[in-house]
């Protein structure tokens, strides 16, 4: 039901032919690559110490694909997601989104990229506490070109009855679903979720994951979910494992589980 490919990290960084595993990935996805990254390296300067978060990542993500980035904390998965989402730029290496070179893009180009293409879901929801569920979604739809109506997006995640509630009046799972509605309301081509269930219990987590899965399935949104919870990996098309800033494994799921089948 799954096959483990040779880790990309074992190939020499600069010369690693993308085709070694990209070809097979492309066969499975059968679609055009949305992201292509080569030799991604990221070093943070924290005071007097340098922290190497990414140590040369080669990677391609495909249109409509559901990818789970799996790894323990400090493995570099958040850094990778931030770079894919245009929140951060790599110290070295390159990353493209279709025809956009995210490495060379300036601040305003990255902002436009995020505004037009990316939907974010954060571990701690990052809702604006002073705005209602509907207004939190409106925050994004107001700056998009062809968004859904905020209530429409909220209905999509099953919150049609909670439009006028403030974040403080919602449960954790509801808050995260508002965050998902907010992320997808602009009809993004990419949905990036950083530990979306990290702060939730199992049952709530499953509801949230169902919402994400539905977006991926119904809207065909390329979806990347970060988690350190290996069970979630079973619902992905492809699971990319990271450790210590490197890709330590890639797994293709021939059959995806639906969220309510997951156990953890």
């Amino acid at each position: 039901m799954s096959e483990v490919e040779s880790p990309a990290a074992t190939a020499p960084l600069s010369t690693a032919p993308l085709s070694t595993y990209e070809t097979s990935a492309a066969v499975i996805a059968g679609r055009e690559a949305a992201f292509e990254a080569r030799g991604l390296t990221k070093i943070y300067h924290m005071g007097e110490v340098d922290v190497q978060a990414l140590r040369g990542i080669d990677l391609a993500l495909y249109e409509g694909e559901f990818v789970v980035l799996l790894g323990p904390s400090g493995s570099g998965k958040s850094t990778l997601l931030n770079i894919l989402g245009g929140l951060d730029i790599p110290t070295a290496g390159s990353v493209r989104y279709h025809h956009h070179d995210l490495t060379a893009a300036g601040e305003s180009a990255l902002t436009r990229y995020r505004r037009e293409h990316v939907g974010f879901v954060f571990q701690f929801y990052n809702l604006i506490p002073s705005l209602t569920a509907e207004e939190n979604v409106a925050l994004v739809t107001e700056i998009s070109t062809s968004p859904m109506r905020p209530d429409e997006a909220l209905r999509l995640v099953g919150l049609g009855e909670r439009l006028h509630h403030f974040p403080a009046q919602l449960s954790g799972g509801e808050q995260q679903r508002v965050a998902i509605a907010r992320a997808v309301a602009k009809r993004p081509s990419v949905l990036l979720c950083d530990e979306p269930t990290g702060a939730l219990d199992v049952r709530t987590g499953i509801v949230v994951l169902e919402a994400i899965e539905r977006i991926n399935r119904d809207l065909g949104t390329t979806t990347v979910v970060i988690t350190h919870n290996a069970s979630i990996a079973d619902m992905a098309d492809r699971v990319i494992s990271l450790s210590d800033g490197r890709i330590s494994g890639v797994k293709h799921n021939t059959t995806k589980k639906s969220p309510h089948e997951l156990e953890w």
């Binding site: 902002t111 436009r112 505004r115 701690f124 925050l139 700056i143």
Partner: peptide, 16 residues
């Protein structure tokens, strides 16, 4: 800080 981050992640510009 986190709200600002979210706004920027959604595509609000620095000027906004």
């Amino acid at each position: 800080r986190e709200q600002i981050a979210a706004l920027k992640a959604f595509g609000y510009t620095n000027v906004n």
